[in-house]
Design a protein around this nucleic acid. Structure first.
Length: 596
RNA sequence: GUCUCCGUAGCUCAGCCGGAUAGAGCACCAGAUUCCUAAUCUGGGGGCCGUGGGUUCGAAUCCCGCCGGGGACACCA
């Protein structure tokens, strides 16, 4: 939490440590807690310098000193440091710092030597964190609704990894409920079709408990595969057999087929989770029941009757005793049922098992990425996790709002019935994996998003995907033209770096050195979209510099008659390319070498 | 009715676990444009940060109320 965990390359953290040292010296009586609110950050207005600290204002009250007076003393102390060129009190008690140019420029070799590892942090401190995302029901192909969660979860996991956590990427397969049962019946129908049954779909549907669902074509190949594997042994003479004779077999076969298809879709999106946990398996292994027994032993499970829900009352509501988890003891609004009326576990009960399993595997922090329609489920799951771990394992939930797909200014209707149902694969085929991933991260995950199919492939300033990729391509173009100097070689150009003097060059440099703190802050806030915004800003700084060269030829990167300036600029360009790649890697987007 | 997320420029959105004069892109206005990669560039106007209180040296940010919008509300997943 303190600077001990900050990224080694984060000079803001380094300066913060210096500020604290000065404060301790100036005010020996000051309690350590008073220092936690001290920040060192880039000032909003660049005219104020490279860094600014609120230290004097934050500490003033406890120290019983006037902020401006303390700011002046702190400024004087900080001025002693070799890396500080200017330090001055300002405003209500800020201390503004201008760093020595040599120190600032000296960060460039740090970037070049670290490569894409630049920005790797230590704030995660190796803590075992589990990020579960997608977890779509294995009842059909993935559609765009799943896509945002997949990208956000994957990028967040990458981000946490970069910040120093030990990350497990996980997928929980909901293969135990009534829906996969219905899937079994649906697949069986396709199997009967493959065998050449004389039944009509409607005749078959009448015999299916709860009606025939999942009528999409995607189960046709599964029916054929069932025939391939089992011949007509599950339906002799192409006539439906007793469900007990085939349902489990068909269901498991179909779930496996669906999961294979889902994994292919995820792979197409560049997502590959480390662990796939089966709900059915957890139930079978008794994990869910043991978790409930554990809660029960803590006195948190009881038989009771819930109040009827307020507002619109369900048609078939009746007071009924249920097995309940006392989630209200942990901040939930009502206690939650663990068993259905037929005695089997509720989804919630099994999910408690899922979370207990993660805790048992040694996870110290849990993250779930859910659709916003699961918002009402957050409190109860946090309650359960708190109860299971005695408060030791926090559960963070990211809710992803709906994505509206737009085409030609019109929303594309998402309806299975109308046949305008967009699968994830369709989306990737239409605009490409990288555009999908980048675009999904251009909004805060809890804000609604319009995904404009036309905009996303547009090659213009308005398209952030293009804009960032273009900046990287321009960097690479310059480096190719300069004969691909090795980063290590450029890192050795300490003396030449002093030729970097233009405001646009220094602005770009300042952006680059903000990368480590950007990673730390985004990881701490669990907000991967910040990486996309940072890269947009970085690309903008680079394009501005590039454009300066269009007006003023002496600002171009390669100067035939000035080899020293050229090497310094190449170092800056190479560092820019590195940081862009570093950021894109977090987002799971491949950098491009040239725009074609 | 309860819970939850949201409300920032005409539009789409940022705003870094409170900080100095609230930012970007688009749109609009005025200029530039035979450039290392063409897919533009420079400058400008434009906001009571939904609203009323509170906490504080200091609030778009934290707390409470209200207004307006999305979502969720026993035995689905």
């Amino acid at each position: 939490m303190e600077q001990t965990h900050a990224a080694p390359q984060d000079i803001f953290a380094a300066l913060r440590a210096e500020v604290l040292t000065c404060l301790r010296r100036l005010l020996p009586e000051l309690p350590e807690e008073a220092l936690t609110r001290v920040t060192v950050e880039p000032p909003r207005d660049a005219a104020h310098g490279d860094m600014s600290t609120n230290a004097a204002m934050v500490v003033a009250k406890i120290a019983k000193v006037a902020p401006p007076k303390l700011a002046a003393e702190l400024s004087a102390a900080l001025l002693e440091l070799p890396m500080v060129a200017e330090a001055a009190p300002a405003g209500p008690g800020f201390v503004n710092l201008r760093l020595a140019e040599s120190f600032l420029l000296g960060q460039l070799p740090v970037v070049l030597r670290a490569g894409e590892a630049y920005g790797d942090g230590a704030s995660g401190a190796g803590v075992k964190i589990n990020v579960e995302y997608v977890s779509a029901n294995p009842t059909g192909p993935m559609h765009v609704g799943h896509c945002r969660g997949a990208v956000v979860g994957d990028a967040l996991a990458n981000l946490l990894g970069k910040a120093g956590y030990a990350v497990t990427k996980e997928y929980y397969i909901n293969d135990a409920g009534a829906q996969v049962q219905a899937l079994g019946y649906a697949a069986y129908w396709r199997y009967l079709e493959a065998l050449g049954t004389t039944l009509t779909e409607e005749e078959y549907a009448e015999a299916v408990p709860g009606g025939l669902q999942y009528r999409g074509d995607y189960l046709v190949p599964v029916g054929a595969a069932l025939k391939e594997t089992f011949g007509d042994s599950l339906a002799p003479g192409a006539k439906p057999a007793e469900a007990s004779l085939w349902l489990t077999t068909v269901r498991e076969f179909t779930v496996a087929a669906m999961m294979e298809s889902i994994r292919e879709d995820l792979a197409a999106l560049g997502v590959a989770q480390d662990v796939f946990i089966s709900e059915a398996q957890l139930v079978k292994d008794g994990v869910a029941d043991r978790a409930i027994a554990e809660l029960s032993a803590k006195g948190l499970v009881y038989e009771g009757v819930l109040e009827p829900p307020k507002g619109k009352l369900p048609e078939d509501w009746e007071p009924r005793p249920q097995t309940l988890f006392a989630s209200t003891k942990f901040g939930d609004d009502v206690d939650r049922p663990l068993r259905k009326s037929d005695g089997s576990n509720t989804y919630f009960a099994n999910d408690i098992g899922n979370h207990a399993d993660k805790i048992a595997r040694g996870m110290q922090q849990l993250v779930q990425v859910w659709g916003a329609d699961h918002g009402g489920y957050v409190k109860r799951m946090q309650a359960a996790t708190r109860a299971l771990s005695d408060g030791a394992v926090p559960l963070d939930v990211l809710l992803c709002q709906i994505v509206k797909v737009m085409k030609g200014g019109e929303p594309v209707r998402m309806s299975k019935r109308a046949g305008t149902y967009i699968t994830l694969r369709d989306l990737i085929d239409e605009v490409g994996r990288d555009a999908v991933r980048f675009t999904m991260l251009t909004r805060k995950s809890d804000a609604q998003m319009d995904f404009d199919l036309d905009r996303v492939v547009e090659q213009s300033r308005e398209n952030p995907v293009f804009y960032v990729q273009y900046a990287h391509a321009r960097c690479r173009s310059v480096l190719r033209q300069a004969g691909e100097p090795a980063p290590a070689e450029l890192a050795g150009e300490e003396a030449a770096l002093a030729t970097l003097q233009d405001a646009a060059e220094l602005a770009l440099l300042r952006r680059l050195i903000a990368w480590p703190r950007t990673v730390e802050a985004a990881a701490a806030a669990r907000e991967p979209h910040r990486i996309a915004f940072y890269l947009g800003d970085l690309a903008s700084d680079f394009h501005i510099l590039w454009n300066r060269g269009r007006e003023d030829a002496t600002l171009r990167f390669i100067q035939a008659e000035a080899p020293e300036a050229t090497r310094a600029r190449l170092a800056l360009v190479a560092a820019t390319a590195i940081v862009i790649r570093s950021g894109l890697a977090v987002m799971g987007v491949a950098p491009v070498e040239e725009m074609r």
